[in-house]
């Protein structure tokens, strides 16, 4: 498994041509208490950079953009039922959706963990 990060504070765990997408622990700490999450349904097609999910804290709503293109295979229902999971486990059980990558070359240029950490620290 390879872990990638985006400047939009998402993480992508890639195993072959499947990817699990979530927001980073840094992102959840910036958002604060999460009260609502909307995830895409299985079968939906998402395009890199398009809106794929919604996350709302007490204060504000944020869109989660698809970091890579593909077909959604599963949205995390546990997150819909318990949005606070994003706060407690952003980079594990708090994943948003899984997808089948349509273009693995889109992973090029994404950050690895060390590069992301440096990026987040500069925010």
């Amino acid at each position: 498994m390879t872990l990638y990060f985006t400047k939009e504070h998402e993480w992508i765990a890639v195993e072959g041509d499947t990817a699990t997408v979530g927001i980073t622990d840094f992102a959840q700490s910036q958002l604060g208490d999460i009260v609502f999450v909307e995830v895409p349904a299985a079968g939906a097609t998402v395009k890199k950079g398009s809106e794929a999910a919604v996350v709302e804290s007490v204060k504000a709503a944020s869109d989660v953009y698809a970091p890579v293109s593909g077909e959604v295979t599963e949205g995390n229902q546990a997150l819909v039922d318990d949005p606070a999971l994003v706060n407690s486990a952003a980079e594990s059980e708090g994943w948003f959706f899984k997808l089948r990558l349509s273009d693995t070359s889109e992973l090029e240029g994404l950050m690895d963990e060390a590069a992301y950490k440096a990026f987040a620290d500069s925010q």
Binding site: V35, F36, E56, A60, A61, P83
Partner: peptide
């Protein structure tokens, strides 16, 4: 509001 999504 119905559901859980805040309206701003």
């Amino acid at each position: 509001i119905e559901g859980r999504q805040p309206v701003r």
